[in-house]
Design a protein around this nucleic acid. Structure first.
Lengths: 234, 234
DNA sequence: CGACGACTTGACGTGTTTCAAACGAGGTGG
DNA sequence: CCACCTCGTTTGAAACACGTCAAGTCGTCG
């Protein structure tokens, strides 16, 4: 449950942002430039574990970047089923909307530090700076690509395939390519993959028994056989 | 299977587009302006049933708008499983990418007429016209919202809930709000909802038996009890 | 040490898939 | 005009993967 809602009490030092900060050399990537300059226009806020950062349906006045910790976004169906849309790790940007409102709820998975940036600042800047406008578009497109992949996973894959996809996704983020530290609980993973917590747990032990991974602890996974996992990735 | 690939032989009359065409009054919607002006910069191409319009991984040099017929976009897993990402009906725009390549394949569901517009034209224009840039962003955001909804459906819903969601989605597009003409096959619906063709068929007859819908023919559905369907929509 | 939360494991039930066959509409040819 | 083929759809019966319910284990913190 929400522990604090610091958005309302944001220090409005955003006005001090230097417009020229976004006029740096164009990165091949399309997001780095934006990610870099964000630091100059926002404030870092701490969110304790399970604190709500923003709620579904709230006005999307800010955009967020994980500085430390981890964040999940999700939607709740009225009967309590939860679909997690994505996990955000340090460096990731989330909460950017083209429309007026947030379409998901965002919560800190663990105690987290989050950079908060006023959206109107960016949108106003984007009106004059073509490449910033493109960065915003690219960011949304990246989110789209991620959800499309998730959709593929949710569509018609076995539990093993889903868990394998998840582990490979996590590994591809942690530069340390074959040891993954999971900040999220089994329930979070289950709600991300459209499975139950029991199935996730069982599947992980199956994968361990088949020597594809090992589990030194429940939150730590070592990918022992990438090839096998990738084959499951279908 | 692909019957023709007319993209290569596109008449390049796109250069005759009038830049000022996009400077019309701002619509509340954010897409109408773009959708409207597109007609001036592209050519309408016919695609026979099942013809490929573009393929996954191909350069995304064009953007498309359905003029007549219907289009599906999908991804194929190597073992033949197919996930349909969306259905596009007359008026809908598809194939817009922020990146260089198409991430899905697009095919005509039935004989279709499709307006084809050169992307570089739009992107170049967007560099000078702020609201066109915003329209492109909004279009991607709309696609994102749609896929997020689909993700919710695929996540952990029963067959009844999925089919009900699908029917309500289709009904919300056909202005004729309670009679839906389905251009796509049961297999298409199944691959959209992450079910098998048999389950879709069975579920439709269940819904008919429970008086929620009626099926005058296999491609024609009449929504008899919206409330019941919406309750299933969870 | 005890208690709590997160995770794992087991036994059983069930909704969906799978495999198989029948049905129906549309089209062609005799 | 009817026989016949084809393709999409429907229906049936059996198998299976995952969900559910319940108990047990592990690690952490007070």
């Amino acid at each position: 449950m929400p522990v604090q809602t610091p958005i309302a009490s944001l220090p409005s030092k955003t006005a001090t942002a230097k417009p020229t900060a976004t006029a740096r050399a164009k990165q091949p990537n399309g997001q780095e430039g934006l990610a870099e300059s964000l630091g100059l226009m926002g404030a870092v806020m701490p969110y304790p574990r399970n604190a709500e950062i923003f709620g579904e349906g709230e006005p999307a006045d800010y955009l967020y970047k994980v500085v430390g910790g981890a964040v999940r976004t999700y939607k709740l169906l009225d009967d309590g089923r939860r679909q997690i849309g994505g996990f955000y790790l340090p460096g990731d940007i989330f909460g950017l909307e083209a429309g007026a409102d947030h379409r998901f709820t965002a919560e800190a998975i663990s105690d987290s530090m989050v950079l908060v940036v006023k959206r109107s600042t960016l949108v106003a800047l984007a009106a004059r700076q073509v490449d910033l406008a493109r960065d915003l578009w690219t960011l949304t497109a990246r989110e789209l690509a991620h959800v499309q992949n998730l959709m593929l996973t949710l569509g018609r894959k076995t539990a093993q395939e889903r868990v394998a996809s998840f582990l490979l996704e996590m590994a591809s983020r942690n530069s340390n390519c074959d040891a993954v530290e999971l900040p999220m609980s089994r329930q979070d993973i289950a709600d991300y993959l459209g499975l139950t917590i029991e199935t996730v747990s069982r599947t992980l032990t199956q994968l361990e028994n088949s020597a594809a991974i090992s589990l030194p602890s429940s939150r730590r996974v070592i990918l022992r056989n990438m090839a096998a996992l990738r084959k499951l990735n279908a």
